[in-house]
Design a binder for these strands. Sequence first.
DNA 1: GAAATATCATTAACCTGTTAAGTGATTGGA
DNA 2: TCCAATCACTTAACAGGTTAATGATATTTC
Lengths: 157, 157
Amino acid sequence: MQNDTQPQPRDTRHSLPMALLRAREAVMSRFRPLLAEHDINEQQWRVVRVLAEVDQLDATEVAARANILAPSLTRMIRAMTDRGLIARAKDATDGRRVLLSIAPKGRELLVKASPDSAAIYRQLEADYGADRLGQLIEMLIDLTELGVDAAPPPEQD
Amino acid sequence: MQNDTQPQPRDTRHSLPMALLRAREAVMSRFRPLLAEHDINEQQWRVVRVLAEVDQLDATEVAARANILAPSLTRMIRAMTDRGLIARAKDATDGRRVLLSIAPKGRELLVKASPDSAAIYRQLEADYGADRLGQLIEMLIDLTELGVDAAPPPEQD
DNA sequence: GAAATATCATTAACCTGTTAAGTGATTGGA
DNA sequence: TCCAATCACTTAACAGGTTAATGATATTTC
């Protein structure tokens, strides 16, 4: 056996980025019909949910919490305000900032979709195991919080 | 306390889809510089790696294994064949199928990028714990394999 | 064997992802 | 005060994500 002369990449099945991608796709496939029913996409749904948790938030923070890039959010703001899902206002003390908040139709959407969403989540817990699902989420949060460079090379100066 | 009249969605931090998204973003941020160095994006990198594991594969299978939708793959095939990363051929026995295989520049890319990729992965294991990372991947694979409807509602007729 | 059906790939249309550059507002040091 | 640097958002350009429709082959059914 001399098959390890060249370091081969991990097989795609056990690659962490791909495993994350596939798992996400598997989970989202359960929620997609519900989102389609309410004529909203994943990204807008995330924005609505982030804004539901707070009174108002500047665009940069919304983008960070909903995992959406600033240019994407800029485009989405127009569509979502036009649809009455969110409201946009300028920050009085900082002219650069755009403050976003949830609007009536956004709350309405949340109220209408939440029960089904919760049911889908319960089914997922039933299928996978509620404890195990909770454990998985904690592990994912830990992974996320490692940050880009948990152990950066020592700076030389 | 009477705050549970309306089922509120899980806070975004503990939402499974968002946790998966954020974790993936955190992991990919480590790999992105390497991919940029080789002037390739995530999706093309996935296609190259899938094709490296086999002799040839029809487009549908490549799409499935690389988690890329068929229309996206169609667009990518042109760019990737133009660049010499993959090769495209028609299936002699089934005129509908397009068979894809890795091409010399694709193998070259793999050879050049793999050592750095492996190093990034080892760093990730060091930061997160190799055992724990393996456990996480197994949990993600299990989640993926639940499928869309592990326990579909009983059909009525 | 012909018609109906199913499958694979492509195209189209619209949206978001991503990077880079641009604009206006704010901040902080000379 | 000035002005350079930074910051928040926007715009632009191109690529992929997503859905639906279309075309071309295969397969199934009668």
